[in-house]
Measured scan of single mutants.
Amino acid sequence: MAAAAAAGAGPEMVRGQVFDVGPRYTNLSYIGEGAYGMVCSAYDNVNKVRVAIKKISPFEHQTYCQRTLREIKILLRFRHENIIGINDIIRAPTIEQMKDVYIVQDLMETDLYKLLKTQHLSNDHICYFLYQILRGLKYIHSANVLHRDLKPSNLLLNTTCDLKICDFGLARVADPDHDHTGFLTEYVATRWYRAPEIMLNSKGYTKSIDIWSVGCILAEMLSNRPIFPGKHYLDQLNHILGILGSPSQEDLNCIINLKARNYLLSLPHKNKVPWNRLFPNADSKALDLLDKMLTFNPHKRIEVEQALAHPYLEQYYDPSDEPIAEAPFKFDMELDDLPKEKLKELIFEETARFQPGYRS
């Protein structure tokens, strides 16, 4: 834990890192770190609560700039109880001085990944967590956004079992017609939660990839272990087919990539493993919904509104309290091709509203 900075004593240090967030945020305490930044909790002297502050230093890398800009653009436009918001952003007053960006968010005690390492969940908890994931996802999908990296560590939890989806750095506007060349190379989302079509096709992607990830998360809540822990690309596919069985001819016809289709045709026939054999203690309604989410063919996979209306979630289902976005989200430009200098300018502009004396 960093010592509390005395008023006016300059930035606090946390594990050798400068955290320049005073005077409003003090009493910093280390939480963890990701690929390009550290997260601390801090005391907000204005709202009198502890908050989470993520320090991001992305400006050396085009990919990190892209992810940072995506996350900020999306989260500043989203407003939903099951999606983490941005409360404040701290950065230098000029673009030349801006080396880091500090993002202030609600402090959540833990995440689903940490929880599943230590606790076996009751059916009631599984049901409530799944409902909140789908409630947040309904809003995301209504904005025409794909999260693309749903996994237990991106689901934040607090002691009252509130759940918030975080990390929109890989999110995209849904565009089933656009052929994202190089899709697989830039697709760094965790393999275990990846839909089979991501490994088999490169053309376009749809909201059904997020539903697949939610199915993987439900299976993990039922058993405290990942359902498809593939060691590499082909191993991942083999794990999936080992449980779902061989795809039907109709399902194979959806695979545009001939090499991928021929690979699947070359494999020995596998039978589907019954879900109640894998999860003998699970609620039968939970397994019915799991089956509809972990469907090989993305066109037959359940959609988020149908999933919310499934009998497993009937005690929570309330369409009048499951809000959607006001308007579909649009990125003005494809960020993939922009140089990091341009992305830095866009991050600077996007964060201006939090600067003292800002006038829109």
Rank of each mutant, 00 (worst) to 15 (best):
Y43F: 14
I240E: 03
I95W: 11
Q119C: 05
I255W: 09
E349I: 00
P328M: 09
N253D: 00
T190Q: 01
A325C: 02
I83R: 04
L343S: 10
Q105P: 04
N201I: 15
A7S: 13
N45S: 14
T159Q: 09
L130Q: 14
L265M: 12
N262Q: 04
A2G: 08
K99A: 05
T295Q: 06
G242F: 09
L244R: 00
Y25D: 08
I95E: 04
K203N: 14
D149Q: 04
E81H: 03
G245Q: 02
K259G: 08
Y25M: 03
F228I: 15
C65H: 13
M333W: 01
I324Q: 06
P356S: 13
K55I: 14
G10H: 07
P196A: 08
F168I: 14
I90Y: 04
I302S: 00
K99V: 04
D283F: 07
C166G: 11
K48N: 15
R191Y: 11
K231G: 05
I72S: 12
G215R: 11
Q249L: 14
L290N: 05
V188A: 10
R148A: 07
F296K: 00
Y131R: 03
F183A: 01
K270W: 05
L115W: 02
A282F: 02
Q97P: 06
D44F: 13
Y317S: 10
N281D: 00
L112I: 02
D332T: 04
A3I: 00
K151I: 07
Q62G: 10
I302E: 04
K330P: 10
M221F: 04
N276E: 09
I256N: 14
S320P: 02
I31V: 00
T63F: 13
E81G: 13
N271V: 10
L343F: 05
T295E: 07
F183G: 06
M38T: 06
L146T: 03
N238V: 05
P339T: 13
V145E: 15
Y316G: 02
Q315K: 13
F183E: 06
S153N: 12
L112F: 07
I255N: 14
P93M: 03
C127M: 12
L157V: 09
V273N: 03
Q66Y: 12
A219R: 10
N154T: 14
Y30V: 02
W212T: 04
L244F: 06
E326Q: 12
D337Q: 04
A286P: 06
K344W: 00
I95G: 02
W192H: 12
L289Y: 08
Q17H: 15
P247C: 00
Y128W: 14
Q97V: 09
G242M: 09
R79A: 01
K117H: 05
I84A: 07
L184Y: 05
L116R: 09
T110G: 10
A9D: 13
H147D: 10
E334V: 14
A307M: 11
I31S: 06
E250Q: 02
V49K: 12
A309D: 11
